[in-house]
């Protein structure tokens, strides 16, 4: 008993010091007016009241929600790709590495590269579109497109990790099921929808949970692609975590920033709880 406690102590201390304590202090700060330096004063629910009436907060939640929905479209894509890679007999690992590279690339580097790709005048994307006679846009300088542009990068960045998880799930499906269905005359497409997807659904569910949480926390792309270059589209493209950063660290309003963070936490908890409820109707646990 004593030894056991000793061995779990490092992890526990780390958890308390690096997660639990900051969380509690954020929670407390959300009920305070916290200047950059000096003592904080309790203001009760003021931060939350202000937050509800703050159009910027609603807009940021809207942007984050749109981004999340768009990034979720990457999951069907990942399922199809994972199934296709599973069919490849040679060089499977080459494909895995190719799709995994963005995952291990620094988000800063990813942001910089995509900023050039999306550039309205000299960008690669508009150049390629011009081959097909399509007029390009200022993808990350026009607030109408920014969230969509971010989502495309978000899907690309998350694809690799999703493929690994889904690939592992695919290998757990017994080959005998496919062989039996083939004998019964099922084609590839039919097998995909009636065997692969249902038997893979626990992995798909897991990937969905992770994707939603990561998407609601999107920050680095917007920081690198808009903020670091004084892009005027920033005002209309803020995500909720970006807004938190801006309030707490640029505008010295830590209390208000903390309230934004707490609301985000609640939203993530509700979104996750909702998914656990909904999974009963579509996830198949054999």
């Amino acid at each position: 008993m004593g030894w056991a406690l000793l061995f779990i102590a490092p992890a526990t201390i780390g958890l308390v010091a690096l997660y639990l304590w900051p969380f509690l202090s954020t929670f407390v700060k959300s009920f305070q007016d916290v200047p950059a330096f000096g003592p904080a004063t309790y203001t009760g629910l003021d931060n939350y009241v202000e937050l509800v009436g703050d159009g910027e907060v609603w807009k940021a939640f809207g942007n984050s929600a749109l981004y999340t929905v768009l990034v979720l479209l990457g999951i069907p894509l990942a399922v199809v790709l994972a199934a296709l890679i599973e069919q490849v007999s040679r060089g499977r690992s080459v494909y895995r590495v190719l799709f995994f590279l963005p995952v291990v690339t620094l988000p800063v580097a990813v942001g910089m590269v995509w900023r050039f790709i999306y550039n309205g005048d000299f960008g690669l994307l508009n150049y390629v579109l011009s081959w097909f006679g399509i007029d390009g846009h200022y993808w990350v300088a026009d607030p109408r497109f920014t969230i969509y542009a971010f989502a495309a990068v978000g899907i690309w960045m998350g694809l690799g990790i999703n493929l690994i998880i889904l690939g592992a799930g695919l290998q757990a499906i017994p080959k005998a099921v496919y062989e039996a269905s083939a004998l019964d005359g099922a084609g590839r497409v039919r097998q995909f929808f009636h065997i692969t997807v249902p038997l893979l659904s626990p992995s798909i569910f897991f990937v969905t949970i992770l994707t939603v949480i990561a998407a609601l926390q999107m920050f680095d792309l917007i920081f690198i692609m808009l903020r670091s270059v004084n892009n005027t589209a920033l005002a209309d493209s803020k995500t909720i975590v970006y807004l938190f950063y801006e309030k707490a660290f640029v505008q010295f309003q830590q209390g208000y920033g903390a309230a934004v963070a707490i609301v985000l936490l609640i939203v993530i908890m509700i979104a996750t709880a909702l998914q656990f409820r909904l999974q009963r109707s579509w996830v198949f646990y054999g």
């Binding site: 550039n119 309205g120 990350v140 300088a141 004084n230 892009n231 589209a233």
Partner: peptide, 9 residues
């Protein structure tokens, strides 16, 4: 334009 100057400082 403002958009061009947002894309390229």
């Amino acid at each position: 334009t403002l958009k061009q100057l947002s894309d390229t400082e």
